[in-house]
Simulated scan of single mutants.
Amino acid sequence: MRLAEIDQYLSSSIPSQATGWRRFVLEFLMFGLKEARCCLFAGLFFAAVFLMPRAGLFGIPRYDALLLFALLVQVWMVSTRIETIAELKAISVFHVVGFALEVFKTSGAIQSWSYPDFAYTKLFGVPLFSGFMYAAVGSYIIQAWRLFDLRIQHHPPYWMATLIALLIYVNFFTHHYIGDYRWYLAACALGLYARSTVLFRPLDRDRKMPLLLAFLLIGFFIWLAENISTFFGIWRYPNQMGAWSTVHLGKWSAWSLLVMMTFTIVVHLKHIRSKIHIAH
């Protein structure tokens, strides 16, 4: 079965007469299948990250091989229409935004983390593949809109959501100089999205959850992936230079805010705006 046929099957509202625990199990399985499909790019990319030998592949340094793999997967997804050109443009924005943040965080003046291995495709000390880690989050959100038939109720006005997203991004830079205002921004976001609900369809019935909870859950799984990545030495924080240790739990909040920022970029896509109800 081709991937397009699988997508068509997963996207359709599959009627079911199941009730009770049978319905729960069926919806849970369908939810898991759709989640796995939404993570196609992220899953392939991070599988390559974890499986790529430290010495690289076929004489190609590890970071360069990861970049080549990510580009090939991205070309394949567009050529097979898994992603549209408009969605690719949005994902490219995530790549640029993420790479700029990486350059700043790894700079000599900041040194929040580092990429210790050699690569031909390093720019300002950052391997170009790193932007795809941020693009993977955007790809997941875009695919989820389609497969789960996502709709948002009581979304804040676009200008407010965009402003808080910009402030979140700026704070990742400025907190090294004028203090970390993350929790103030989180409090503002809590008020802004307090009434926002995401509707999704695992099977044939709509389910819903607070949008803020969705941000937290996605941020948590990214934090888990970050722990695995640092364990395999893809990058390291200063406290992991001697021996590996768990990434600080505070990074979960940072990732959740970054997910919120990524989500804000996604909702500006034309075919997604039609599924968003703006609160008044």
Score class of each variant (00 low, 15 high):
residue 193 Y to N: 00
residue 226 E to C: 04
residue 82 I to S: 05
residue 92 S to D: 09
residue 194 A to K: 09
residue 188 C to K: 02
residue 105 K to A: 14
residue 21 W to C: 14
residue 278 I to N: 00
residue 49 V to Q: 04
residue 54 R to C: 06
residue 138 G to V: 00
residue 216 L to M: 12
residue 6 I to L: 15
residue 50 F to S: 14
residue 231 F to H: 15
residue 202 P to T: 00
residue 23 R to F: 10
residue 4 A to S: 15
residue 143 Q to F: 02
residue 246 T to Y: 14
residue 56 G to Q: 00
residue 8 Q to W: 13
residue 267 V to L: 06
residue 184 Y to A: 12
residue 258 L to K: 04
residue 122 K to S: 14
residue 100 A to D: 12
residue 157 P to C: 11
residue 15 P to F: 05
residue 66 L to V: 01
residue 37 R to V: 12
residue 5 E to I: 04
residue 232 F to E: 07
residue 222 I to Q: 02
residue 207 R to S: 08
residue 164 I to A: 00
residue 61 P to S: 05
residue 58 F to S: 14
residue 105 K to D: 05
residue 250 G to P: 02
residue 150 L to R: 03
residue 242 G to Q: 08
residue 129 F to G: 01
residue 204 D to Q: 02
residue 117 D to P: 07
residue 115 Y to E: 09
residue 62 R to P: 00
residue 34 K to A: 02
residue 195 R to W: 06
residue 204 D to S: 07
residue 21 W to A: 15
residue 73 V to D: 00
residue 38 C to I: 08
residue 190 L to R: 11
residue 251 K to Y: 13
residue 18 A to F: 15
residue 64 D to E: 03
residue 98 G to W: 01
residue 249 L to T: 15
residue 106 T to Y: 08
residue 60 I to S: 03
residue 125 G to W: 01
residue 178 I to D: 02
residue 133 M to I: 10
residue 199 L to I: 09
residue 43 G to S: 08
residue 135 A to E: 02
residue 133 M to R: 05
residue 105 K to N: 14
residue 123 L to C: 14
residue 163 L to G: 08
residue 275 K to I: 05
residue 124 F to T: 06
residue 243 A to K: 11
residue 189 A to D: 01
residue 71 L to W: 14
residue 57 L to R: 06
residue 126 V to I: 03
residue 90 A to H: 03
residue 258 L to A: 12
residue 254 A to I: 10
residue 77 M to W: 04
residue 178 I to M: 03
residue 172 F to G: 00
residue 178 I to R: 03
residue 103 V to T: 06
residue 122 K to T: 04
residue 184 Y to R: 01
residue 103 V to Y: 06
residue 173 F to L: 10
residue 122 K to Y: 06
residue 47 A to F: 13
residue 174 T to I: 07
residue 86 A to R: 12
residue 11 S to H: 13
residue 264 T to A: 12
residue 158 Y to G: 06
residue 245 S to W: 04
residue 245 S to G: 12
residue 134 Y to P: 01
residue 27 E to D: 07
residue 104 F to G: 12
residue 139 S to K: 04
residue 25 V to D: 12
residue 14 I to M: 09
residue 94 F to G: 06
residue 244 W to G: 09
residue 239 N to H: 14
residue 149 D to S: 07
residue 205 R to N: 10
residue 144 A to C: 14
residue 205 R to A: 09
residue 118 F to T: 05
residue 244 W to L: 08
residue 46 F to A: 09
residue 112 S to P: 05
residue 29 L to F: 04
residue 160 M to W: 04
residue 235 W to L: 13
residue 183 W to F: 15
residue 145 W to C: 08
residue 220 F to M: 07
residue 201 R to M: 05
residue 138 G to S: 04
residue 280 H to Q: 13
residue 275 K to E: 06
residue 138 G to N: 00
residue 42 A to Q: 11
residue 258 L to W: 02
residue 52 M to I: 03
